Amino acid sequence: MALNTPQITPTKKITVRAIGEELPRGDYQRCPQCDMLFSLPEINSHQSAYCPRCQAKIRDGRDWSLTRLAAMAFTMLLLMPFAWGEPLLHIWLLGIRIDANVMQGIWQMTKQGDAITGSMVFFCVIGAPLILVTSIAYLWFGNRLGMNLRPVLLMLERLKEWVMLDIYLVGIGVASIKVQDYAHIQAGVGLFSFVALVILTTVTLSHLNVEELWERFYPQRPATRRDEKLRVCLGCHFTGYPDQRGRCPRCHIPLRLRRRHSLQKCWAALLASIVLLLPANLLPISIIYLNGGRQEDTILSGIMSLASSNIAVAGIVFIASILVPFTKVIVMFTLLLSIHFKCQQGLRTRILLLRMVTWIGRWSMLDLFVISLTMSLINRDQILAFTMGPAAFYFGAAVILTILAVEWLDSRLLWDAHESGNARFDD
């Protein structure tokens, strides 16, 4: 018995066209964080690309023209004298008006014999932002004059995390709450300039795509075929072959399989920071003279006294001054041990922890910024005066060393310790 099946006739004509040209192939790229070699397709503007294995951002879609970056830099340069030299806060102490600005706080630190601690604050609040705007201006002028731009481009990517104007702005709020127990506070004209400078700096850093600047100024022929001998440069993120001198053909720094002496430098910085954190938390970090009496505060006791007036601000200072430094030390110690013992479990967790400490590390400088600003506000000789204690130097040095330890660690070593050939990683 035959089955009668109805015929289905399409209502619209289906047209099949042959592909007349070869589909576009992607360029081969190595991930600078996990060293995976993959094919990167062509990316349009405002599109980002991520590593298929570790999800690290390979290409950032946010990109401004150099002219727009230069305009932002010149605007920031105009704001800087007002943000640093004009009063941020006014207080009335014992019937006398006192003005506080950024430069005055750094000068008070240096004047009291601790120039190293003052230079830490100076670099993060004044030096690094000033280098940022002058570097962008150098790129703008240098591109037109045919100057060598490689050193500036190499420095810009590392400079971003040292620009800490946003953290200093939080420190202004913390210092205001600490001082309000002794005097009446009012915002100064410099505060508005400083807030504007923070906003412009944040926007500029978020749109400063150094890798795209490398592509514009020093374009290189990408690798179009897969080759395990391809290496990625950690300076400019170019994937290719080393030249005859073993250097990256684009930025001219040595092109090595792994960062040289990464573990040794990381261990040295980490152990030194552990040693410095002990006096930083045991010795007094601030000293207040009130009517001839002397009151010393460690980091913890200062947080407890701050909690009596504002528990939320005390929580912020606790996280930045105690929780973050010790968390960074514990995480980095764990990561280094996992590399030495070739741990194969929990790779995803370790990668996330490394990215976390990379982002939060700079916030530990908050305590030094609060001390710097408070020193310029309260300084009335023996009637009422505020000065920093010996722990300030140890704390600042420990924070900087932990930042350097994270920067010096080559994250690809975590993958080397893991089993080879993993296309995915999980716990």
Rank of each mutant, 00 (worst) to 15 (best):
M1A: 00
A2M: 11
A2P: 14
L3N: 13
T5N: 12
T9Q: 13
T15A: 08
A18G: 09
A18Q: 12
I19S: 10
P24L: 10
D27Y: 10
Q29V: 13
R30D: 01
R30N: 10
R30P: 05
L40H: 07
N44T: 12
H46N: 11
Q47C: 15
S48K: 15
Y50R: 07
Y50P: 02
C51R: 06
C54H: 00
Q55C: 11
G61H: 15
W64A: 09
M72R: 01
F74T: 11
M76L: 15
M76H: 04
L79I: 12
W84R: 15
G85Q: 13
E86F: 02
E86N: 06
L94D: 00
L94T: 02
R97A: 05
R97H: 09
I98Q: 08
V102M: 14
M103S: 04
Q104I: 05
I106V: 09
M120I: 08
V121R: 00
V125N: 01
V125P: 04
I126E: 06
I126H: 03
I126K: 14
P129R: 00
T134V: 08
Y138S: 05
F141P: 05
L145T: 06
P151N: 02
P151S: 05
E157T: 14
R158Q: 15
K160H: 06
L165E: 07
L169N: 03
V174H: 02
D181C: 02
Y182R: 04
H184V: 06
H184W: 13
A187D: 08
V195R: 04
I199N: 07
L200G: 09
T201D: 03
L205Q: 11
S206F: 15
H207N: 13
L208H: 05
E211D: 13
E211N: 11
E212G: 15
L213I: 06
R216E: 09
Y218H: 04
P222I: 08
T224E: 15
T224Q: 09
R225E: 13
F238E: 15
T239D: 06
G240R: 04
G240E: 05
Y241C: 09
R245P: 07
R250Y: 02
R258Y: 06
S262C: 06
K265F: 01
L271A: 06
A272V: 03
A272F: 01
A272K: 00
I274N: 05
I274M: 08
V275D: 09
L276W: 11
L276V: 04
L277V: 07
L278D: 07
L278T: 06
P279S: 11
A280M: 07
N281P: 02
I288R: 01
Y289I: 04
L290W: 03
N291D: 02
G292K: 09
Q295K: 06
E296Q: 05
E296L: 11
T298M: 08
I299D: 03
M304Q: 09
L306I: 12
A312N: 12
I316V: 12
L323F: 05
L323S: 12
I339A: 05
H340N: 07
Q344A: 13
R350P: 10
I351M: 11
I351N: 15
L352E: 08
L353W: 11
R355D: 10
W359M: 13
G361M: 02
M365R: 00
V370F: 14
V370R: 00
I371F: 08
I371M: 09
N379M: 03
R380A: 01
R380L: 04
D381M: 05
I383D: 01
L384T: 02
T387M: 08
G389N: 01
G389P: 01
P390T: 07
A392L: 03
G396S: 04
G396C: 02
I400M: 09
L401R: 00
L404P: 01
L404G: 03
W408T: 07
W408Q: 03
S411Q: 12
R412Q: 01
L413N: 08
D416H: 13
A417N: 10
S420F: 12
N422W: 13
